[in-house]
């Protein structure tokens, strides 16, 4: 009897350890395996031109995912990011006359404003994040379509176009920007008081309130950051596509970002933000899409593969047990 119990608990311990390892390092291992498989299938996958294409496509998703990771860290969710991309896209033609600086300023301010509204709904009105940002998602896209006159517009502003197409040291400028933002986000979470407060608020909001943390300020700030990053992504999307199309740009982006965060191992229950994991998660999803598209796999199958990955990632984070 006692040996039985011992064996059983030993097994459980092993299983728990394995799942924890999977949770902590699974995404990096998966990324390496995927890359090797991709190269095995077609050696040209390692070519710089291919890496560049992947980085161009990765950058906007990664920017949005970074903001999403912070929001999810507070046990929230931000569904409005795709619409904020559309809003940013809609102001690009309007402010093109003021150059890249004017465009960025206008777009980022609007992104911040949208985030502040969402954050205020969550922090002050105590509306559930999913409902607050869902309403924002619908309203902001509508606003974007009104601002743009609701039809796709070609963009010719040279600064915006350069931002979406130029490379520095062979790496897209967009990717450098995303990398810097990832670094800053990592520092924010790991090295600042704000980062610790964010994690504390996500871990246990009531305890945060009782211990006098500035819960509302933290909540509003993360939604503002998410809005600003989404707006930046929006300008990059417009620059890369040379077109502002608020009816279509940013569609599904909130889902892609959530996927990247979840695959990266950040728990949706809050209290933890994995920035590097999010980078790896976004990269993993990008490479999966790339491999399947390049090998001409039908989209329907691509979607099934992506769904399986998401389910597995959620399962892995769920089985992590007590924190």
């Amino acid at each position: 009897m006692s040996t039985n119990t011992l064996a059983w608990s030993g097994l459980t311990a092993d299983r728990t350890r394995m799942l924890r390892l999977l949770q902590e390092y699974g995404v990096y291992a998966a990324l390496v395996v995927l890359f090797l498989v991709a190269v095995g299938l077609d050696t040209s996958f390692v070519e710089m031109s291919n890496i560049r294409v992947q980085l161009f496509q990765l950058a906007p998703t990664l920017l949005v995912a970074l903001g999403m990771a912070l929001v999810i860290g507070t046990e929230g969710i931000d569904l409005s990011v795709g619409a904020v991309i559309a809003l940013a896209a809609s102001v690009v033609p309007l402010y093109a006359g003021y150059g890249l600086g004017g465009v960025l300023l206008a777009a980022l301010l609007l992104g911040a404003a949208s985030g502040a509204v969402g954050g205020a709904m969550v922090a002050f009105a105590r509306i559930q994040p999913i409902v607050a940002t869902l309403s924002l998602m619908i309203g902001v896209r509508g606003l974007a379509e009104i601002v743009n006159g609701n039809s796709a517009k070609a963009v010719t502003q040279s600064g915006v176009l350069a931002l979406g197409s130029r490379t520095v040291a062979g790496i897209p400028e967009m990717a450098w920007i995303a990398a810097v933002c990832a670094l800053l986000t990592g520092l924010l979470v790991r090295r600042t008081t704000f980062g610790r407060q964010l994690v504390a608020v996500g871990d246990n909001r009531r305890a945060g309130w009782l211990s006098g943390l500035p819960v509302r300020r933290v909540l509003i700030t993360v939604y503002v950051i998410s809005g600003v990053l989404a707006a930046l992504a929006g300008v990059l999307v417009v620059g890369h596509g040379a077109e502002a199309d608020p009816a279509n740009q940013g569609l599904n982006m909130e889902l892609n970002a959530i996927t990247a965060v979840v695959v990266g191992g950040t728990p949706l229950s809050g209290g933890r933000v994995r920035v590097l994991g999010t980078v790896a998660g976004a990269l993993f999803m990008q490479l999966i899409t790339a491999v399947l598209t390049q090998h001409n796999v039908h989209t329907s199958y691509t979607q099934i593969v992506e769904a399986a990955i998401i389910c597995f990632a959620v399962y892995a984070s769920q089985e992590r047990g007590t924190r």
Binding site: S44, S49, D245, N248, A290, T293, Q294
Partner: peptide, 16 residues
């Protein structure tokens, strides 16, 4: 039927 998707897919296909 979307510009951004058309661009992304075409970028991948030109690589492969």
């Amino acid at each position: 039927f979307a510009q951004a998707d058309g661009q992304k897919v075409m970028e991948q296909l030109l690589q492969a």
